[in-house]
């Protein structure tokens, strides 16, 4: 804060007072650089209200025209074909179907992803030691964090693609089908 202030107001060491700056406004600003702020009360609160109403209205419209699915009564004797997990887990279900060790896609991979996500802010820091700098070069990719962005984008698109395949392109007995046919 102090640094910024010094840039704006160059103080004369011989004087105990100084001209600050004349800024348009409705109230005096003390010990602060001129900044581009607005009052929260009308400006932000109006936007907040509009946004909330728009989302609620959109949700109401969707709920009016699309009914939530309700299938037959639960029956432990018959599995529906195909038996699908909720859509946010179909990516994992798709991965499970490739391997005969469900522990890898279902437990280990999600856990590793969660741990990696939690660690992101702790590994994306300014390297202070040579080891940290090497670490940074491998996992982050410098100041522009090229590798981290690449990995994260890969994670998002991987999740997206497997989820789409699992929820749209899988039909009876989990065989590949095209959704438009």
């Amino acid at each position: 804060m102090d640094k910024n202030q010094d840039k704006v107001f160059v103080k004369d060491p011989n004087k105990t007072y100084g001209l600050m700056e004349i800024v348009e406004g409705t109230s005096p600003m003390v010990e602060k650089a001129p900044e581009d702020t607005v009052d929260t009360f009308p400006h932000y609160i109006i936007l907040l209200t509009i946004c909330s109403l728009a989302v609620t209205f959109a949700l109401l419209l969707i709920s009016l025209f699309f009914d939530a699915p309700l299938e037959d009564l639960a029956n432990p004797l018959i599995t529906p074909n195909p038996g699908k997990a909720p859509w946010y887990f179909t990516g994992i279900q798709e991965l499970i179907h490739y391997t005969n060790k469900p522990v890898i896609p279902a437990i280990i991979i999600p856990l590793l992803i969660i741990v990696w996500l939690i660690l992101i802010p702790y590994i994306d820091r300014k390297p202070l030691t040579p080891f940290a700098s090497l670490f940074n070069r491998i996992f982050i990719g410098g100041e522009k964090r090229r590798i981290l962005i690449y990995l994260f984008t890969l994670f998002i698109f991987g999740a997206l693609i497997f989820t789409i395949i699992g929820s749209l392109f899988r039909g009876e007995n989990w065989s590949f089908v095209l959704p438009w046919k």
Binding site: P69, L70, E71, D72, L73, A74, N75, P76, I78, T79, P80, G83, K84, A85, P86, Q93
Partner: peptide, 11 residues
């Protein structure tokens, strides 16, 4: 407690 629910949770 429909089929979707039962088998989703079972799996």
């Amino acid at each position: 407690w429909d089929q979707l629910a039962y088998w989703g949770i079972t799996v």
